[in-house]
């Protein structure tokens, strides 16, 4: 009897840890599927091409922030500044464009601004030894204050058509001139922000899984002292994670402002919480050492779909907050149940 049951049990326990991470992703994916099905039953317009594109657009910003956040969270840190850095970066780009700088270099400068904020975060965390929570809370205030001060708290509008391409353009868009003289959209195309999100997600995933820096990010969050003793340059690893988070907040800021064709210094308030929620729903642990890009993407889409679907159902944004709050707690609770086994 014992002889028969033992090998199968061994195989089972050997599979557990690997399947555990997959289990979380699958349950998150299942949640997403259930949400999509439920919302499309509730409102036929939910699955329409236009609404799908809207969801893609909305999710791209949370997704970009979430990717950077995931890297920081895996190192055992947190980045509360991404919402404010997003605003500062977008504002800087807007001001550059207004001052006559062409759109592409202006956007690059905006992203550099974000990266600089992230680098500063990393510096405060690693060299000044201030906890990530406090360090990035400081940057949250600094970047928001800077954005508001630079603009006098007023949005910068009339930035020209070229500025709006990143946020509103689409690849493979097919438009036909109708008989009545109005353009008719045959295929709306794939929005640039969605393409950007996919590209960034693939690169980030490759970095985390296949490059040494990725392994060092996991090792640092798993056991910082062990990583240091093993020869991992822990400080450099963290600096890179925070800088990337800042840079991605800059990218997200440019996408968002471009979509609005306005540089809004008060945009992105509380976005850091959505980004953290996306990472955590996707299986990242705030204790560090655990998390992944694919999970965070699912998490971002759960939040995006939830927001969009509830909006279409006429649910107030306050109720949405409540729902998402419960989803975050539920996701982490399920994760703990799994780990306790």
């Amino acid at each position: 009897m014992a002889n028969i049951s033992q090998p199968s049990q061994g195989a089972w326990t050997r599979m557990l840890p690997n399947s555990a991470a997959a289990f979380h992703r699958i349950s998150a994916l299942l949640t997403l599927a259930i949400l999509v099905i439920a919302f499309s039953f509730a409102s036929p317009a939910f699955l329409s091409v236009n609404n799908t594109l809207t969801i893609l657009l909305q999710t791209s910003v949370i997704g970009l922030l979430g990717i950077g956040m995931t890297m920081v969270i895996i190192t055992g840190g947190i980045d509360l500044s991404v919402g404010s850095v997003l605003a500062l970066s977008g504002t800087v780009t807007g001001m550059m464009v207004k001052a006559g700088v062409p759109v592409v270099p202006a956007m690059m400068l905006g992203v550099c601004m974000g990266a600089a904020c992230g680098l500063f975060n990393g510096f405060v965390v690693t060299k000044m030894k201030i906890t990530p929570f406090v360090a990035t809370l400081g940057m949250m205030l600094i970047a928001r204050g800077a954005a508001l001060q630079l603009t006098g708290a007023a949005p910068i509008s009339q930035l020209g058509e070229a500025f709006g391409v990143l946020g509103n353009g689409a690849l493979f868009r097919v438009v036909e001139m109708g008989d009545n003289g109005f353009p008719r959209v045959i295929f709306p195309g794939i929005p640039y922000p969605a393409i950007l999100l996919v590209v960034v997600a693939i690169v980030a995933s490759y970095m985390l899984r296949r490059r040494a820096i990725g392994r060092h990010i996991y090792a640092t969050g798993s056991n910082e002292e062990a990583a240091r003793l093993s020869g991992v340059l822990v400080d450099r690893t963290k600096l890179i994670a925070y800088t990337l988070s800042g840079a991605l907040a800059g990218v997200a800021g440019n996408v968002l402002m471009s979509r609005l064709i306005t540089a809004q210094p008060s945009e992105g308030v509380m976005y850091e919480l959505d980004a953290i929620a996306a990472a955590v729903i996707g299986g990242a642990s705030l204790m560090g050492g655990v998390g992944g890009i694919s999970g965070t993407m699912i998490g971002a889409f759960i939040i995006g779909v939830l927001r969009n679907g509830l909006n279409m159902g006429g649910v107030s944004s306050f109720i949405q907050q409540i729902v998402i709050g419960f989803v975050v707690i539920g996701a982490v609770y399920i994760d703990q149940l799994r780990n306790r086994r």
């Binding site: 899984r209 296949r210 490059r211 040494a212 990725g214 392994r215 060092h216 996991y218 090792a219 969050g221 798993s222 056991n223 002292e225 062990a226 990583a227 003793l229 093993s230 020869g231 991992v232 050492g289 655990v290």
Partner: peptide, 28 residues
């Protein structure tokens, strides 16, 4: 004495931590 292992990584990753073996293209 504390072993200095990164708990979430597997044995090979720990063995080579900080001195990873890489392919020609610098991948792990």
């Amino acid at each position: 004495q504390t072993l200095a292992l990164a708990d979430h990584l597997d044995a090979p990753s720990n063995l080579f931590l900080g001195r990873e073996l890489k392919t020609r293209f610098g991948n792990l």
